[in-house]
Design a protein around this nucleic acid. Sequence first.
DNA 1: CTACTTTAATTACCTAGGTAACTAATTTAT
DNA 2: ATAAATTAGTTACCTAGGTAATTAAAGTAG
Lengths: 147, 147
Amino acid sequence: METHQLFHTIHQLSRELAKQANHTLQPFGLYTAQWSVLFVLKEKGKMTQTELCDYLAVEAPPMTRTIQRLMKQGYVKQVKGEDRRVKIIEMTEQSKAIYPEWEAAILQMNDRLLTGVPDEQREHMKQLLSSCLMNVKENAQKGKLHE
Amino acid sequence: METHQLFHTIHQLSRELAKQANHTLQPFGLYTAQWSVLFVLKEKGKMTQTELCDYLAVEAPPMTRTIQRLMKQGYVKQVKGEDRRVKIIEMTEQSKAIYPEWEAAILQMNDRLLTGVPDEQREHMKQLLSSCLMNVKENAQKGKLHE
DNA sequence: CTACTTTAATTACCTAGGTAACTAATTTAT
DNA sequence: ATAAATTAGTTACCTAGGTAATTAAAGTAG
């Protein structure tokens, strides 16, 4: 089977979704990377930067940058942990207050973009993609071990 | 249904695949963006930059940059068309000669990454994602029309 | 207790891709 | 035929995310 096309479609879909999300968030002065951090913090409460990186599967340097921007905007604050290397990140009262607006806009966008895709199919895609992602990560590691 | 997760998985999978592809191409001094152009040129023959942009669904500015890099490496050359605005891009003899090596490396990687994913499932995913992409693009346009 | 190693985060620099503004060539309209 | 609008490509600048090298704090030998 022609895997080029499959990978290209994934890449294209990913970019298109990011573009739409950025467009949706623009009126709020937010970008997708910022939003993803705020979303996780709302869901999970305070977290260290490393925990955020692990959860979002992003390397540390971009995370540092995203958090610094969120701090500058006043949407997030850093608290020093017992371990003085660690920086614990949590939402400010301000961002907790505005959060529902952001979420509503994103949910509305998600709904609009997936109009016509039945719920079963969304679930099915999620399952397929998740298992594919795990597979890719495993086989990537195998590739490295053979070096 | 929770669309956040679906979109996040797509994004993550896309990044993971790009990372792997870059790793595979590194020994050849190529990056994914370059490879995607070379792949299309091999498949379709000479094309204008706009045609390349349309085919790969990429905006013009990044394409300009990618092509300039490929020219600097001697893998691609520009020919002026009848319409003197247009730049027709084609592979050089050199890159045609090396191409099979690049392709072999990529095909091997694709195969390795999808080990354990049956062929039917790959095809199924491609179908699902393609239809989802079309859907998203249509609904994105509708969003714009409502402004 | 000291020396080595690991870990959290940052800094610097790279590629990818998007938007806005611009130039130059070609169409289209008047 | 000339003016206006469109089109191809470029330039400048932005965000996203990755790697390598660095710093500072903890942990782990010896």
